[in-house]
Amino acid sequence: MKAIRAIAVNTFKEAIRNKILYSLIFFAFIMMLISLVLDQATVGQRNKIIKDLGLGSINLFGIIIAIVVGINLVYQEIENRTIYPLLAKPVKRGQYLLGKYFGILLTLFVETLLMSFFLFLLVLFYEGRIDFYLLLSLATIFIEIAVISAVAIFFSSFSTPFLSGMFTFAIYIIGHLTEYLKQFGNDSGSFLLEKITLFFYYVLPNLERFNFKAEAVYHLSVENDKLVLTILYGVIYITTLMILSVVNFERRDFK
């Protein structure tokens, strides 16, 4: 446990000093610009659009950072040989990988937190009050980001950063379309196609499940059970991925 924590903290420090959080400035800049432009647009719609775009950008920035950091994290340590002295110490490879994962999560959490804070400020400025409904969407966005980083780590446990990036990005896209994929299989009338789409439906992460943007922006009610199940779904998916990543990683030779 101590080793996992040490590695996580170290990963976080490294990421912060690598100036990852500078992307926040970019985010803030875009949001400011958009809100200024929208000021000229129709009243009433503006608040909705700021929330829409705010949630959307937080989501997108989180995903991009999760993929970029996730795929490079382990690979760079092997490339730079920084991993050798680490694994030559009494640290299990599983501990190492978990530490790295928690390190990214911590980084992404801080990043999401700061972006959310900025969005809340913007909404407060335009709407005159804090819209707590947004928290619902922000929380599930973070789960989605956590799932995507686990996917990135999983791929990078056996593949190159380039391929891992491609795979993870593809999973991100398809993960938002699995519901339609399943529907497509159902409608096709082909038994084989139906089974294949069903297989992918269950194996790939169903990322639409973490999309509560409409509920947050339109203040729709969400059942507690649904929320609990959604969180549980994310946690179980991540756990499975991390077990598989560790198995892959343990079998690996560090040439």
């Binding site: 199940l229 959604t230 549980l232 756990t239 499975t240």
Partner: peptide
């Protein structure tokens, strides 16, 4: 078992 649990949750959702 995690996989089946996950399927179950997906179906409930």
């Amino acid at each position: 078992s995690l996989f089946f649990l996950q399927i179950h949750i997906q179906n409930s959702l």
